[in-house]
Design a protein around this nucleic acid. Structure first.
Length: 425
RNA sequence: GUGGGUGUAGCUCAGCGGUAGAGCGUCGGACUGUGGCUCCGAAUGUCGCGGGUUCGAACCCCGUCAUCCACCCCA
């Protein structure tokens, strides 16, 4: 019988890796809440149109990476490929602007993209992210980028660089695009096949090409920064000033483009240099999307957000960041007569707030103690016949081998373990 | 979608034409109520799958699947 396997690119996260995931998730939650963000949870499935209209019909994501299906022959649905579209949909659907002029949300959860899996890139992957609605000024941009950097810093992820660019407003973007394709078209034949295709639907990408000929041609191309309006420019300047003030180093990267159509003005990515990640080394990506809420049927609303890949953060964590979970006590029985009271004692300890393991199979004493040791328990509570006859049990410190007798009755046992724990720590 | 690497015990891998191995892990034991170290012992393999070459294939050839990495793109 062929065993069933998980779907390609969709991985199990086993208990051994969980402490690292929890570390990332808990740090993010605490930080986001400290920054006054509140969690929002949206469905994993949305109408396909939501993504087509927000991310853009001609983007890679919408064109070839979405898990889309028709539900019972009517509704066209899609597994969300990113978090912003759903968040905006919820913001509009619940008239969140009515609660106040500025809304700060954070989220955490799985996203789905049908790409070829490789290191740091999976078909089901987890993102954490934040969105701010209702603040058009550059200070939030800076605050948000700085927060992302602090998150990485707090996780011990060093050697990151913040890349920054501005796409200008919607008008600027179109104008620049036209100017760029106007510049590149005469050299069309000299470009690599990929770039010829890029020229059609995403000329900005040509600037990123690694082929030497393309680079040469691109070198003389107009720069987006020359096409920014005075307002766009002052927004960018304001953002950079504030970042400096916050002490967050960053580099201007005029060729930075991102794969989603909804971005306006501020665009940023945070990458890790020379870490565990291979070529998929973007940890955080984000930007401003001032027109999206309105285009999806809400009121005109300025907005900005970022997302980070949790797998990538976990991969980048320094060794030894997360410790395995260990029980404080391991309850050990010495024979069939002591298994019953041992199970009761374990329950009492657990309800007393003490993490406790017990081998309920009633194996040999030696194997139970071996297990206690393997699990990293601090103490073994040995329920032996002799002690039991006096209503007591042996509490053994597995580090020092010191062993004392303690009462097995309910409130006393918890207190006894408590005081023993305080002695060793 | 394209290219390359790899598929042998639960894990990491050796074996590269003569009929399957190591380390780690697991389990048991070393005078029978006391763990970690050490020692002894045990269990587990359709050598990814299908076909071909050969007296004989884990090893060579073809195909196929899986997986990893890279391109593309991104978190």
């Amino acid at each position: 019988m062929e065993p069933v396997r998980a779907v390609k690119g969709m991985n199990d996260v086993l208990p051994a890796e969980m402490p690292a995931w929890h570390l990332v998730e808990e740090r993010f939650r605490a930080l986001a809440e400290a920054y006054s963000y509140r969690e929002v949870r949206t469905p994993v499935v949305e109408p396909t149109a939501l993504f087509a209209r927000s991310i853009g019909e001609t983007t890679d994501i919408v064109e070839k990476e979405m898990y889309s299906f028709v539900d019972k022959g009517d509704e066209a649905l899609t597994l969300r490929p990113e978090g912003t579209a759903s968040s905006v949909r919820a913001y509009i659907q619940h008239s969140a602007w009515a609660e106040g002029p500025v809304t700060r949300w954070y989220y955490l959860g799985p996203m789905y993209r049908r790409e070829r899996p490789q290191k740091g890139r999976y078909r089901q992957f987890y993102q954490l992210g934040v969105e701010v609605y209702g603040d058009p000024g550059p200070h939030v941009d800076a605050e948000m980028i700085d927060m992302a950097v602090r998150l990485l810093e707090g996780l011990g992820i060093r050697r990151v660089t913040v890349e920054l660019n501005s796409l200008g407003g919607p008008g600027t973007r179109v104008a620049y695009r036209d100017a760029l394709s106007g510049f590149l078209s005469p050299s069309r034949e000299a470009l690599c096949p990929d770039c010829r295709r890029r020229l059609e639907h995403n000329p900005l990408r040509v600037l990123d090409c690694k082929v030497p000929t393309c680079r040469q041609i691109a070198a003389g191309a107009p720069r987006i920064t020359d096409h920014l309006t005075a307002e766009d420019r002052s927004h960018l300047d304001g953002l950079r000033r504030m970042l400096d003030r916050l002490g967050t180093p960053h580099v201007l990267e005029p060729r930075l483009v991102r794969g989603l159509d909804y971005y306006t003005r501020t665009l940023f990515e945070i990458k890790e240099e020379g870490g565990e990640l291979g070529s998929q080394n973007t940890l955080v990506g984000g930007g401003r999307y001032d027109g999206l809420v309105e285009s999806l049927g809400g009121p005109p609303t300025a907005a900005i957000g970022f997302a980070a890949g949790i797998e990538r953060l976990v991969l980048s964590l320094p060794d030894g960041s997360a410790n395995p979970i260990r029980p404080a006590v391991s309850v050990v029985s010495t024979g069939s007569a002591t298994l019953d009271p041992a199970v009761v004692a374990a329950r009492d300890l657990r309800l007393g707030g003490i993490a406790t393991d017990i081998d309920t199979r009633g194996s040999s004493l030696k194997s139970q103690l071996r297990r206690s040791d393997k699990l990293g328990a601090r103490f073994a509570l040995i329920v032996g016949e002799d002690e039991l006859s006096r209503g007591r049990a042996a509490l053994r410190d597995l580090g020092t081998k010191e062993q004392v007798e303690v009462p097995l009755s309910k409130p006393e046992i918890v207190d006894a373990v408590r005081t023993a724990m305080e002695k060793t720590t």
